[in-house]
């Protein structure tokens, strides 16, 4: 129990930073209705760009901004593949993600690159966990406030309409292709921000750091909905996704403490997401009774 409590601040810091990724996933998955597989690649890309820019001597905040921008470009590429070249959404994201592996390797020159908090004025670091929590909270609050305002504007409303009903959106003169691209740019920008902060927090960037990031993002969004309910306003929904990420990392910490081998973590994450996403279907089978199940099979 003592060890668990000692680990808590670090777990919360990590959860909050991943919470920014969860907000990005909320934008693409929930608002845009786009299962965006780019995320795994753009998370690593954000980290790789940020770390290499820092090592190249750029100011840390400029480096982080560069991480956000490159991740935005990755989202834009997926958007082009889907909206202009009509490649299915999932495949568009997978193609970008796969391509990004090579690009991330090229950016870093090798599979991991360390960045020391002793040599650079990093924004967050595992060495200063309490400060990291405060800074992460500031980032989260700023992101939520900006998105809340943005999605209330004409352009933001157009993106929401596109995610809800493309037919209706086009009938109202909305360029749905452009809205999808813009939504992917915003979502991946947030993912890149999360990746750039995590790399600083851990003190290194890793080409594999984004593997399964989309699943963690989805888990956070779903946990947030299940725990806090979904009948809230937009800002609150974004906040619950961040809390979902924190809860996710607390749960992971608990099962690790209980002795689960870390090799099994990805299986655990995948199972959590699969289970929660299956709940609506399971409920409807339950309600429609066994006859329905028999007819379906």
């Amino acid at each position: 129990m003592g060890a668990f409590l000692n680990a808590m601040p670090g777990v919360i810091a990590q959860g909050l930073i991943w919470g920014i990724l969860a907000i990005g996933v909320y934008i693409t998955f929930k608002v845009l209705d786009f299962a965006d597989m780019t995320v795994d690649g753009s998370f690593s890309l954000g980290g790789a760009t940020t770390v290499m820019a820092i090592l190249a001597g750029f100011d840390v905040s400029i480096a982080l901004l560069a991480g956000v921008l490159t991740a935005m470009i990755a989202g834009y590429v997926t958007g082009i593949l889907h909206t202009i070249f009509k490649i299915p959404a999932i495949l568009s994201g997978i193609l970008t993600q796969l391509g990004l592996y090579s690009i991330n390797m090229r950016i870093m020159g090798k599979s991991t690159q360390a960045v020391s908090v002793d040599k650079y004025a990093l924004i967050v670091s595992i060495r200063f966990v309490n400060e990291t929590i405060v800074i992460a909270l500031i980032f989260v609050a700023a992101v939520i406030a900006l998105l809340y305002i943005f999605f209330g504007t004409e352009i933001g409303s157009a993106i929401r309409a596109t995610g809800c009903n493309q037919n209706m959106a086009r009938a109202q003169g909305i360029n749905t292709g452009r809205c999808i691209r813009l939504g992917l740019v915003i979502g991946n920008g947030l993912v890149g921000l999360s990746g750039g902060l995590i790399a600083q927090y851990q003190g290194f960037s890793d080409v594999n750091s984004g593997r399964g990031a989309i699943v963690i993002g989805l888990a956070a969004v779903i946990i947030g909905e299940v725990v806090f309910g979904s009948r809230h306003n937009f800002a609150f929904k974004l906040a619950t996704s961040v809390l979902g990420a924190v809860i996710y990392y607390i749960v992971i910490q608990i099962v690790l403490q209980l002795g689960l081998k870390s090799d099994y973590l990805k299986l655990l994450s995948a199972s959590i997401v699969a289970l929660f996403m299956a709940i609506p279907a399971i409920q409807s089978y339950w309600q429609n009774g066994k006859r329905m199940i028999r007819r379906k099979s």
Binding site: T153, E154, I155, S157, A158, Q172
Partner: peptide, 16 residues
Amino acid sequence: ALAARRGQSRFLKPGT
């Protein structure tokens, strides 16, 4: 409000 803006450019102004 979306319909009221049919055929117009959309900006970063309030949606409604």
